[in-house]
Amino acid sequence: MLLLAEDLRFTPPGCPPVLDGVHLVLYPHELVDITGPSGSGKTTLLRALARLLPGVTGTLLFAGAPASEVVSGEWRRHVALLPQRATMRSGSVRENLSLPWNLRVRGTETRPTDALLREALDGVGLADVELDRDAAKLSVGQAARISLLRVMLTAPDILLLDEPDANLDDASAEQVRAMVERFVDGGGSVVRVRHLRSDDLAARRYRLADGHLSEVL
């Protein structure tokens, strides 16, 4: 297995438990969906898997290595979270796509060339978006795809997607779905949070309610 979460527990200060003994297994080359009502803790679970949730307890293993033996920055290179709201920094599309390579953690890696960025944009239905375009002028759907593309370009092993097609028009949502499908076909694994519905990409489906994760058969 690629990722194993066992007995994850998290109780926000002054609130009832949000994760109350969650177990999850993710195999290579598969996508699992997690559904559940608003406020059930789906986003919290993704943050726990990405080690972006201080105070969570339980066991996390990536490719057999316990989280305690992997520094958090290294973990997040393999297990990448894409938050629900697309975040664009001020600057051009090129600057936003290249952002991960401005960070110290990837300082020694070769940054993607313009040709590669262009090809990547063309491949996700953004042929009309120039690399020089001001990121502030992107539509919601374009920003969502560029955010997803940015994290995919860092080549993680696992993508944690928080409602990646929420608030998107049908065409943009379909493009996002196609990007995710290609990522899985290329050998990646995905944990995808959805508000209610699921689709045929998922190998397994889980439902999170009252702090517990149960498989939907």
Binding site: L52, A80, L81, P83, T87, L99, V151
Partner: peptide, 15 residues
Amino acid sequence: EEILALVALGASPWE
């Protein structure tokens, strides 16, 4: 949210 997204990409607190 922006800080979370950047940390998820590997940013340090200062970055």
